[in-house]
Design a protein around this nucleic acid. Structure first.
Lengths: 188, 188
DNA sequence: CTCGAATTTCTAGCGCTGCTAGAATAACGA
DNA sequence: TCGTTATTCTAGCAGCGCTAGAAATTCGAG
């Protein structure tokens, strides 16, 4: 009884999130309006507000999905890489993920505002960082704090996606940038 | 006659840009509306549209100002650094600039959409990159393309600002991240 | 100095946005 | 079967970017 209603409700919530994501990936986030979203899922606008506090919360939900997925992608890349090539594999997976899901990435890193990062972040938000940590920490020299090294390495990879998105980097140097990044963080 | 009118016109245009920047830095870009901007400069809305194609073009103008200023800041840091410490000085200047002008930085790297980057970018947009190039190129090893190294180094520094802005990095590791970045790109 | 022409500025409004109060409808238990 | 509760919808508010057309101003010729 009650359970079926709750199940249907969470199904509808997932439908909203996936519809928002699809629309954003197709036409960009500005064209993801509550009206169009409501029309797409064939409910009225107030139904959306019974699931989410507002448009921003829907974007946050999409972003959360993105963090789960990128963690999976990084994990797969790391665990299936030949020994010694983990960094290259994970960095490439990160860049590929960003290129394949630009709107999702935008939600994760420039639009999301209500996600609980920081020390008390939930596991699903930390999982991606953990994958990076697994790759960078072994590369830490005696002077390097592994945590700070991971953050710095993350920034290097993420910076490439951020600058690339704005058309600030030369397309012909794409492979070379990755090679340099790997060399700099593995010490050749 | 004609000259005075043009001068006054460009003064008003500068006023619009500086007002937009100040409002964004004070309350964030979403609260920089054309209406409020018009009220602030004590003209009606259509006057703004006689200077700029739309709200986005105003943001672009602010961003352009930012690129000029960051180039100056990086140049100052580089030329006044002790020999061998240029990278650290420039990287720190970049991070400080981003921290001191968050809304300006947002305009430059996430909001600007009509700025002519790429191969044919004007000198004012390239000046900042040139400063980075002056710092990174000398650090290129035999295998490194200097251009690609500069882009990769830029990404590393920029990534720190991007992740920091979203509260994704541990505040207590700030100095350590910069130290690691410098070590990785200078080869200790 | 006067007056028509050209330019500049303003008023008013369009279609859209996120969001919500209150009415209508549907589902439920007694 | 009927009252209660929960759900959904209709309709509308205030604010947004932007613009057409009216009003005001400035200008040069007579």
């Amino acid at each position: 009884m009650q359970q079926r209603r709750e199940r249907e409700r969470s199904q509808r919530e997932a439908l909203i999130v996936s519809a928002a994501r699809a629309m954003a990936e197709a036409d960009g986030w500005p064209s993801v309006t509550v009206r169009k979203l409501a029309e797409r899922i064939e409910y009225s606008q107030p139904v959306l507000y019974s699931h989410f506090a507002g448009r921003g919360a829907i974007i946050d939900a999409v972003a959360l999905q993105g963090f789960v997925e990128i963690a999976e992608a990084l994990r797969l890349a790391r665990t299936s890489a030949a020994p010694g090539t983990e960094l290259e594999a994970v960095a490439r997976a990160y860049l590929d993920f960003a290129a394949a899901n630009p709107a999702l990435f935008e939600a994760m890193f420039t639009l999301a505002e209500g996600l609980p990062f920081g020390p008390d972040a939930p596991a699903s938000l930390k999982a991606g960082f953990d994958e990076l940590h697994a790759v960078f920490a072994p590369l830490a020299g005696e002077e390097d704090d592994p945590e700070a090294l991971t953050e710095t390495g993350w920034a290097a990879v993420h910076g490439l996606t951020a600058l690339d998105r704005g058309g600030r980097l030369r397309p012909d140097l794409r492979a070379e940038r990755l090679a340099i990044l790997v060399r700099r963080f593995t010490g050749r």
